[in-house]
Design a protein around this nucleic acid. Structure first.
Lengths: 333, 333
DNA sequence: CGGCAATTCGTGAACGTTCACGGGAGCGTT
DNA sequence: AACGCTCCCGTGAACGTTCACGAATTGCCG
């Protein structure tokens, strides 16, 4: 059947044409279901194509008809459920538009991110995702392609960004904890960057607004283990802490584990509120309270904006490129 | 700066050449860091390219140098942690080879799967993933491209498949339960296909080998909710059941929830053992015992075989295309 | 000053497909 | 018999890039 295996010259439309005794154009007509072709010849061409194992070149095809659009989705760690949810949403939005999505997992490594960016510009029509590299470098490496940054500020004619606004949600969370009588609220921040996160700033503002002293903050790895050990350390230093806010749900789940290990009952001895609103939070025991954000619309927004930058349509403004987080109370706090 | 926004003709290498006062080839040399070009002209070309917002066409480039390889990864549901882990492994394996991966989430829908298959053959060099459609249809739609099926049998020169062998692992699990004194072991099977799953066959064989009667089986949706409601129904009908094996970990986690809701303590009143070995299983309470399989090597194997089919190398044989599952005991059973 | 090599650059061709156009065969109408 | 129409089918061109080759310029050495 198909002449596979041995390395040889590619089977082209020309070979099929010769084999079927017709011209290239007729082969093209047969394969693309265009009209202007006799039923019998069409069948003959199709048979010949199958017999030769012909497969059209996507490059040649893409070169002449400029229709297929593909976007690159860059994710630091697909195994992190938060990014998984965003990726799933982006995939769905892209599918609805008939786009193709190339996914790149940078493994939380700045080097891998660089390598990805280097290669990506020549492979996709637009880039969407999370980046940690300095902006001018991203700008240089993605030469020409529209870029949509998630959870990071940057706006030019080619760059766009989706802002995550958790200010109200975090304030609601802290207010809730304060109302429940908690006076010492700690936080587990992430340790990725040098400076404290924006979420920490929201936390600090919220505690101040509630008339509380600034609670102790500990930086941790963005993982369950990171949250687990960080909470243990924090409680060892500040045993008076009775409530906890974390940078994200993953770390909060680690905190839950640490609390269980330390014999602190949640939420009685320690109230825990995370950030992200992962589905995963409903599976742990007790179910995790969280400042939830709509990952679905996050991914969808990013793709939508990429499309607008791409087609030259009216891009969304800063007011529309925001995803707001809101407090979702479950049992842990 | 870059002439973005307005829809116009594409900026080609020719435009850059004219703007810089050189030939196409010189532009190509400058952009691809080839030698045979003077430093100053190179810079001049680069400046001109930047000013015009030039971006090489991946189609034209791909047409002439046949180096870029991209594979399509088809997944029923990226939000299912099992598939996420496989996808992450596949991405990593592909990255190591310098390949690009186009990810398609078929949303567990046969129609979406069909749509994906239709479009995929003309966009990738190989296909890897999970499929539910009949084989002859897959064969017809993927005309020409090598395909690697995961957890499904099929072997021709173009098709390959990765087998999941959980026989020993499941037998170990059931043996363990029987040794702990359980006489009535139920199972939650999946409800996707018409016929019972292979995992059910392993389960049945294992119970028989332990000298137990065939335990009650209930079919359920592949989700936490599915497992939750199915266990409730199973226990209502068969209250004597004291141990449970499930088609996968997700359903097992649902079973854990149901048990808690019903006041059955795990593992004292009900022992639970899942299948898959998800990381997620370590986060729930109690940690889930499971017949674990190495998702990492699963994804890596699939990509490896795709590569061999693609380059005409010696493909892996059936004995190598197997991922064995082994019992991993934690607290739930 | 001639010759030769090294360096730098340009020209035709090729990659494999589709688009625009034109042409021939067959049939019916006037 | 001439004309027009429909139905098929083929030919040149174009898409945008890189490759193979040749030409022009420069520098060096005898």
């Amino acid at each position: 059947m198909a002449p596979s295996g041995t390395e040889s010259r590619r089977v082209t439309i020309h070979d099929v044409a010769r084999s079927a005794g017709v011209s290239r154009q007729t082969v093209s007509r047969a394969l693309n279901d265009k009209g202007e072709i006799h039923g019998s010849t069409k069948q003959r061409v199709l048979d010949a194509a199958l017999a030769l194992g012909y497969r059209p070149s996507r490059f040649a095809r893409g070169l002449v008809r400029q229709d297929t659009i593909s976007v690159g989705l860059v994710i630091p760690d697909l195994l992190n459920p938060f990014f998984t949810e965003v990726a799933a949403a982006a995939l769905e939005a892209a599918r609805a538009r008939g786009w193709h999505v190339l996914v790149y997992d940078t493994a939380d490594s700045a080097d891998e991110e660089r390598g990805t960016l280097e290669v990506i510009a020549s492979q996709v029509d637009a880039v969407v995702g999370y980046f940690s590299r300095p902006e001018d470098e991203i700008e240089k490496l993605t030469r020409g392609v529209p870029v949509v940054l998630i959870d990071r500020e940057r706006r030019t004619d080619r760059f766009s960004s989706i802002r995550i606004d958790g200010e109200d949600g975090v304030r609601a969370a802290i207010t809730h904890l304060a109302a429940a009588g908690h006076r010492h609220i700690g936080m587990l921040d992430h340790a990725g960057r040098a400076e404290p996160s924006v979420r920490h700033a929201w936390f600090a503002a919220a505690t101040a607004a509630c008339g509380l002293d600034a609670g102790p903050v500990r930086r941790a790895d963005q993982s369950v283990e990171g949250g687990e050990s960080a909470l243990a350390a924090l409680l060892a230093e500040h045993p008076e802490v009775s409530a906890l806010f974390t940078f994200n749900d993953i770390m909060a789940i680690g905190a839950l584990r640490a609390a269980r290990r330390l014999g602190r009952r949640v939420p009685r001895d320690l109230a825990v509120i995370g950030f992200d609103g992962l589905r995963l939070g409903t599976l742990v025991e007790p179910p995790l309270s969280t400042v939830a954000l709509d990952t679905r619309s996050l991914g969808a927004l990013a793709v939508e904006q990429a499309g607008r930058l791409l087609t030259g349509g009216e891009p969304l403004g800063p007011d529309e490129l925001v995803v707001r987080a809101e407090l979702r109370l479950r049992e842990s706090g």
